Computed example of a mutant assay.
Amino acid sequence: MTFAATLAALPIGTFRAHAHGKDWIVTRSLVAGGRGEKLVGEALDGSDYISLNLYHLASGDLLNPCEMSTAKVRAFVADLKVLA
């Protein structure tokens, strides 16, 4: 599954999740009329933070992490499990 598909499978809005051995509060929202997505996560223990934008352009998807590495946000989204 592509990064964009994995991200798109997550719920819109705020939810609890688990990744990298921690529980998180995560918010996924659509921006620019659905032409982009924003994901923000904060570990409940306060030890980590994730923020990214994914833009759906005619030339392809553009991942824009917010002041962190692309590898970090890709690994986070890949490991993220939504908690019921």
Rank of each mutant, 00 (worst) to 15 (best):
R16C: 09
M1D: 10
A5C: 06
A8C: 11
E42C: 05
D79Q: 14
M1Q: 09
I12N: 14
Y49G: 03
L63K: 08
L63N: 01
V31T: 11
V73M: 02
K38A: 11
V82D: 00
A71Q: 04
T14H: 05
G41N: 03
L63P: 00
D79W: 12
G60N: 00
F15D: 05
L57N: 04
A8G: 11
S59G: 08
L10A: 10
L30G: 09
T14L: 05
A5N: 10
A84H: 07
G60Y: 02
D48Y: 04
L57G: 07
G60L: 05
G13Q: 04
N64Q: 14
A4T: 07
L52H: 09
A75W: 03
A8S: 15
S51M: 10
Y55I: 08
S51V: 02
S59R: 15
P65N: 07
A19E: 06
W24E: 03
R74W: 09
V26T: 11
A32E: 11
K38P: 06
A32D: 15
S59P: 05
R28C: 14
A78L: 10
R28Y: 09
K38G: 08
I50W: 06
V26R: 07
V40S: 06
R74V: 06
V82H: 01
T2Q: 14
L39A: 01
D45I: 05
V82Y: 00
A75S: 08
G41I: 06
R35E: 06
L62C: 09
S69T: 04
H56E: 02
G21R: 08
A84C: 00
G41K: 02
Y55E: 14
Y55M: 14
G13S: 09
T6M: 14
L30R: 04
R74Q: 10
G21S: 03
A84Q: 05
W24Q: 06
L83A: 02
A43V: 00
R16V: 02
G36E: 03
K38N: 13
L54F: 03
S59L: 13
A43L: 07
A8Q: 14
N64M: 12
A17R: 10
T2Y: 12
A5H: 10
A5E: 15
S59H: 13
K72G: 09
G13C: 02
R35Y: 05
G41T: 03
S69H: 00
L7R: 10
H18W: 10
G33K: 03
F15C: 00
W24H: 01
A43N: 01
V77K: 00
R35M: 08
A71S: 04
P65H: 05
A17G: 15
M68Q: 12
L44G: 08
H20S: 13
L44K: 14
R35F: 07
R28M: 13
C66A: 14
A4G: 01
D61Y: 02
E67W: 00
T6S: 15
L30C: 05
D48K: 08
D48Q: 03
A9R: 12
V31K: 15
M1S: 11
A19D: 07
T2L: 15
V73C: 02
C66R: 11
F3D: 01
L44Y: 05
L80I: 00
R16N: 12
I12M: 13
G33H: 11
F76D: 04
L54R: 12
L62V: 11
G21E: 00
D45M: 06
Y49A: 07
H56G: 04
V77M: 06
